[in-house]
């Protein structure tokens, strides 16, 4: 039940793969209420993360997370670059070896808090926070209930996905989509969608590993 460095590397590989696959979808979501670059931004970013992790293989989960976060900050730009970058960096700083599920859940929450602090968005603002906060809460509950990592990640993935879908009827209050006012209603937030993808990748990797 311990999450290894290899697990984190596999997680970033899975994210990169999924982002590549869903690049057009993310960009289309961003075209509707933003500037049509979210898929491109994340594809560029996680491709670079993959290169960084291959180039200097991390020797600890914390290193993997820090390296990924720093790479995102240095390579993505836009709103999502600093936000996701800071999230992974905060996770990397918070995580302690060996990484138990409880330790991971706490680190994940530190990442979510970093996003909230940097972006000043609260749940309901129609941002990635709307997917990340439910995911973090699901992880915490799973830890409390003593379920295994695989199931915990599944629950988190489902919560993130629901949170993302729940952004559809919202009116955006942060980021570019807020410029649209009423017209932002009826569209899924691209960042919430990519957050759901990131959490789903966690579940995918855990399933594959078990």
């Amino acid at each position: 039940g311990v999450l290894t460095t290899a697990f984190f590397v596999a997680w970033f590989e899975e994210i990169a793969k999924q982002v590549r696959l869903q690049r057009e979808r993310l960009t289309a979501l961003d075209a509707a209420i933003g500037d049509a670059d979210h898929g491109t931004n994340l594809d560029r970013g996680f491709t670079e993360v993959g290169k960084a992790l291959t180039g200097s293989p991390p020797t600890s989960p914390g290193q993997a997370l820090l390296s990924a976060g720093t790479t995102l900050i240095r390579r993505v730009g836009g709103a999502s670059g600093p936000l996701y970058g800071s999230a992974f960096r905060a996770m990397g700083k918070a995580v302690a070896e060996p990484v138990t599920l409880a330790g991971f859940a706490a680190a994940f929450d530190a990442g979510v808090v970093a996003v909230e602090q940097l972006g000043k968005a609260v749940p309901g603002d129609k941002t990635m926070v709307d997917a990340l906060v439910p995911a973090s809460r699901a992880l915490a509950l799973a830890v409390r209930d003593g379920v295994g990592a695989r199931e915990a990640f599944d629950l988190a993935a489902r919560a993130a996905e629901e949170g993302a879908r729940a952004t559809i009827p919202l009116r955006a209050r942060k980021g570019r989509a807020s410029y649209l006012g009423e017209r932002s209603i009826g569209h899924e937030d691209p960042g919430a969608a990519s957050s759901a993808l990131i959490v789903a990748s966690l579940a995918t990797v855990a399933t594959a590993a078990s």
Binding site: D35, D37, N41, G78, A79, P82
Partner: peptide, 11 residues
């Protein structure tokens, strides 16, 4: 200059 329609990175 950042990527097209994407803010530049801190570096």
């Amino acid at each position: 200059p950042g990527e097209v329609f994407t803010s530049p990175v801190p570096d």
